[in-house]
């Protein structure tokens, strides 16, 4: 288990980061920075967060149990030092990339992660809008390999925690671009704005946690472009600020699809594990289809620039 000193340090850092939220609100209301808050949206974020912490408290043992079990059957003894932490951090960041990519590309996992993307706003309080079911979807298993190799569970948990804490500051519109080398190497507000966009061109891009190199290596990097302002949210935005509906809506949607009559087992599997937007009759659109439609539309109207968007 993790040394209590790390818990305390992580809690202290988390508290300090949370204080940045009212500061961002304050600076935005004084028109010093670009940030858009809406009362009901932010309160919904807080509500979702309380639920997410509750379920993490209830089901966190699955994470620790899995990692500890793998560690007891480890292949090697990786020493508990600074370099093993750095190595674990990079490897865990790669694990995060694939966790994140799967979470966007398969509906059962998307049902858990969609919560984080369900706001039409993007500010520091968006950090609070986290899944209630992250331990429950099964992707926690991705944490097992590092422990099985022989990294101490405390090192793995610390790497994961630092990764999540890093991602706090990238949920903001107040920072335009970081220096070029920084934008190349690391995840930034600009890259993460693209990740939270519902514009077809930006869908399923920039899955990185900390290092942008994974997106560059695995072909999912899309830069933010001046001629395509980001529209935050999901393809089918929610008409509710109720935290329970926000947290569970996609599961309800999956259940309704599975209960349709006259579907083959392959079609049912498609509704469960297929990409979000998949349908057996072509009545919905996946990210690829949305992009193709958008591209065809642009080709038809080459003289029309960026489409209208809310002021």
């Amino acid at each position: 288990m993790l040394d209590p000193v790390y818990y305390r340090a992580a809690t202290a850092v988390q508290l300090l980061l949370l204080l940045l939220i009212p500061i961002e609100v304050w600076l935005a209301s004084a028109a010093r920075i670009k940030a858009e808050y809406e009362l009901r949206d932010t309160l919904a974020n807080v509500g979702v967060s309380v639920g997410s912490i509750f379920f993490w408290g209830m089901l966190g043992w699955l994470y620790f149990g899995g990692v500890t079990f793998a560690y007891t059957h480890r292949l090697f003894d990786v020493p508990f030092t600074w370099w093993s932490f750095l190595l674990a951090f990079v490897l865990d960041d790669c694990r995060y990339y694939w966790w994140h990519r799967i979470s966007h590309r398969s509906r059962w996992f998307w049902a858990s992660h969609v919560v984080h993307h369900s706001s039409q706003h993007f500010n520091l309080s968006t950090n609070l809008r986290q899944s209630w079911t992250s331990q429950f979807s099964g992707l926690t298993l991705l944490n097992v390999p590092l422990a099985f190799i022989g990294f101490n569970p405390a090192v793995i948990a610390l790497a994961f925690t630092v990764n999540l804490l890093y991602q706090f500051w990238i949920h903001t519109e107040s920072i335009d671009r970081m220096p070029r080398w920084f934008e190349w190497l690391l995840n930034t507000p600009s890259h993460h704005r693209v990740h939270h966009a519902s514009n077809p061109r930006y869908l399923d891009a920039n899955y990185a946690g900390v290092f942008m190199i994974w997106d560059r290596a695995f072909g999912s990097f899309v830069p933010e472009q001046a001629d395509e302002p980001v529209r935050y949210g999901i393809v089918k935005n929610l008409g509710t600020f109720n935290p329970v509906r926000i947290a569970l809506h996609e599961y309800v949607s999956i259940a309704r699809d599975l209960m349709r009559k006259n579907l083959s087992w392959m079609q049912r599997l498609g509704y469960f594990f297929g990409p979000p937007g998949w349908s057996h009759d072509g009545s919905r659109r996946t990210s690829e289809e949305l992009r193709a439609v958008e591209a065809a539309r642009r080709d038809r109207q080459p003289t029309i620039g960026a489409s209208a968007r809310p002021a």
Partner: peptide
């Protein structure tokens, strides 16, 4: 730890609501 974070969040929420109001 979870309770401590939850308390912080609720406090943060109240503070935010005040600021936003």
């Amino acid at each position: 730890l979870a309770i401590a974070i939850a308390v912080n969040l609720v406090l943060g929420g109240v503070l935010l609501a005040l600021l936003l109001a």
